[in-house]
Nucleic acid binder design. Structure first.
Lengths: 211, 211
DNA sequence: TAGATTGTTAATCGATTAACAATC
DNA sequence: TAGATTGTTAATCGATTAACAATC
């Protein structure tokens, strides 16, 4: 269980809102010095109460009568989200999506080091994509066991996703970002975030129809 | 406001779960004939109550003492999510992410027709990507006004995202799938789904740290 | 000091789960 | 018929918002 400043459980919805706060403070930095939860709420489309309660899980960042110092809070969020720490990541599956992520600059800007790529296609194993060698997925377990790796990004077809996630689990991976359109069958102590592109566009499609 | 079978409001969380139900029924089809909400709940990691209540917003699909017929419910979800209808989509921004989406087969499998691409880079305007011509973003408004277009996918840098979404709004787009790491400033009657990859991996990074 | 604004607790709202009559 | 399972209403749980004492 994930605990906040006083040992209380932090709701997952709050954790998932944290990067959004970071985005706002990053944007506001160098524009102004401070702002209140009321003002930030107007900018974000959230209530001032929610902002104060969300942030209070992580620390006492504000000051009565003043508000939040932007530079300071941005720095605190940088630490909380480990943006200032190098985090080693790997990608499994260098098809369409995996290949695009290889070139995704935002990862390195946020402190994520892409260290290895894996695939099962003999025609690309051994080649380099964006100067990173594509390894055989057969070597995945051995690689993760012997190289510090925090997060694995799964970008394989859905038919292969559970086999890959099983290998990652056994190898001691710490977290998984899953792009395969399937729910991974993993114990709930290993954090998983899903990016189901098709689910999003289908929900959109439904909302349009009924509008 | 989006209304269900008896005119009641359908919560957004329920709409966003709908594609997931579709995935399960698609997967179960040809494996078995029927299943109960209890059994489906075990498979999905959800409560039987939630499944029955979620589905009841859209219709009476089950039968007492029997459960849900898989083929029938899959077909019903296909209609509800318009998977059987052609939906015209366009992509704005053919950088890293936009280009990958151009080759994303799952879109056409779910009934989405990618009809046009837009960018502002003179060196790619006029060229073809995956046999679709890249148009000048200056022609975006004119294109959307004169060609039936339901959904626009924004894959431009965050600095350009709000300008693009403003043009789309004025042109009468029906829904937006946004990949830019910024919150679009749009009236709330136009449905938007965000895919913030960096937010997801940062949340994961936090969860790992505190584990 | 007076005004502003925090962090936190209490009240409210909305979503999830439990219970059950209806009925296949 | 008896057992199973639905759709729906009521109870519970969790998240959001409102209120306010503390204090810069």
């Amino acid at each position: 269980m994930i605990k906040g400043k006083d040992g209380s459980k932090i709701p997952r919805v709050v954790i998932e809102r944290l990067p959004r706060y970071y985005r706002y403070f990053d944007w506001l930095d160098n524009q102004m010095e401070k702002l209140s939860s009321k003002r930030l709420g107007e900018l974000m489309g959230a209530s001032a109460s929610q902002i104060r309660l969300d942030l209070s899980y992580f620390g006492d960042f504000g000051q009565q009568g003043y508000g939040y110092n932007i530079k300071k809070l941005k720095q605190d969020l940088t630490n909380i989200l480990r943006i200032n720490t190098q985090t080693n990541i790997i990608i499994i599956g260098v098809g369409n999506v995996g290949r695009a992520l290889t070139r995704y600059r935002a990862f390195s800007r946020a402190g994520f080091n892409l260290n290895a790529l894996f695939d099962n296609d003999p025609s690309i194993i051994g080649k380099k994509i964006n100067s990173i060698k594509v390894r055989d997925v057969k070597d995945l377990k051995n690689y993760v066991e012997n190289n510090d790796t925090s997060i694995a990004i799964i970008a394989v077809p859905k038919e292969a996703a559970n086999e890959v996630s099983g290998i990652l689990l056994k190898s001691g991976i710490k977290g998984i970002l899953n792009f395969a359109p399937i729910d991974l069958n993993l114990p709930k102590n290993i954090p998983v975030e899903n990016i189901h592109i098709i689910d999003k566009i289908l929900a959109l499609s439904f909302m349009i129809k009924k509008q």
